[in-house]
Simulated scan of single mutants.
Amino acid sequence: MLYKLNLEHILFLDIETVPESETFEQLDDVKQELWEHKTQYQRKDEFTAEEFYERAGIWAEFGKIICISVGYFTSKGDVRNFRVTTFHGAEAKLLKEFKNLLNSHFSKPNHLLCAHNGKEFDFPYIARRMVIHGINLPYKLDLFGKKPWEVPHLDTMELWKFGDYKHYTSLKLMANVLGIPSPKEDIDGSMVRDVYYNNGDLDRIIKYCELDVITTAQVFLRLRNEELLSDNEIVRI
């Protein structure tokens, strides 16, 4: 099935998220209480709600998207390129720009979205934040009434499961076992909050996000047993 897909019909993506407020104290009393209840099971007795708040970016109800990086294949004759760009800035603005991309270039029935662990994180997170901002969902994110085989989403982690519903594999591990050269990353996901709020270095986060998009595309190529992208085939726009 993967071999039949046209690479140019797939939009690869990754998002980076942080807590919606920098500190727990900046939440109003109601939101603090809701956060405490929401995370009670995860925290147990090890952390207070305040101490646990640095992880709030994981939940769309308490976090926000600071960038969405996307990549897509283009070809002209024998020349193959993978074009990468990032939407960033105010969350409502970047979500609208991302929606415009979907509606203008990836709206056909055979167009697909692809992310690593996207079905459990990226796709629902984007959809929830759009609803919170009052943005009508684009067709590719509106799953209501769709049958499972009609959902236009690919997930490289799910493809690697081969039916094993319990198996979690990180993008970094998949890239390693599939022989994909590891990109030079100076941060990881656990550092995004600090880099954003303490250092104010969004460019550093964008670079990290774009590298994950490229790696996801490389993993997809390996799952199809195709030649990996070379550096000169990757175009940042």
Rank of each mutant, 00 (worst) to 15 (best):
F106T: 02
K99L: 08
N117Y: 14
A115E: 03
Y53E: 09
F62W: 10
T48C: 07
P124M: 09
F82Y: 09
M130F: 10
S104T: 15
A92N: 13
F123Y: 08
G89E: 06
F47L: 12
E46R: 04
C67H: 02
K119W: 05
N100C: 00
N110Y: 13
R129H: 05
H88M: 04
K76W: 13
K99W: 06
I126D: 07
A115F: 03
F52Y: 15
C67W: 02
D78V: 12
L95E: 03
T48H: 12
E51Q: 13
S69K: 02
E91H: 13
F52W: 15
G118R: 04
G63P: 00
L95Y: 03
T74R: 10
W59A: 08
D122M: 04
F82R: 00
G77S: 04
H116R: 10
E91V: 15
K93F: 08
A127T: 00
R83W: 01
E120M: 15
G77C: 04
H116V: 15
E51Y: 06
D122L: 03
K76N: 11
L113P: 15
V70L: 02
K64I: 08
L102M: 10
G77N: 07
F106G: 04
F82A: 01
R128C: 09
K99S: 11
G89I: 06
F121I: 09
Y53H: 12
T74N: 12
S104Q: 14
T48R: 11
N103P: 09
H111N: 12
I58G: 07
V131S: 13
H111A: 09
S69M: 04
L113E: 15
T85H: 07
E120N: 10
E54V: 11
R80M: 14
V79I: 06
K96S: 13
Y125I: 07
S69G: 06
K99P: 11
K64F: 07
N100Q: 08
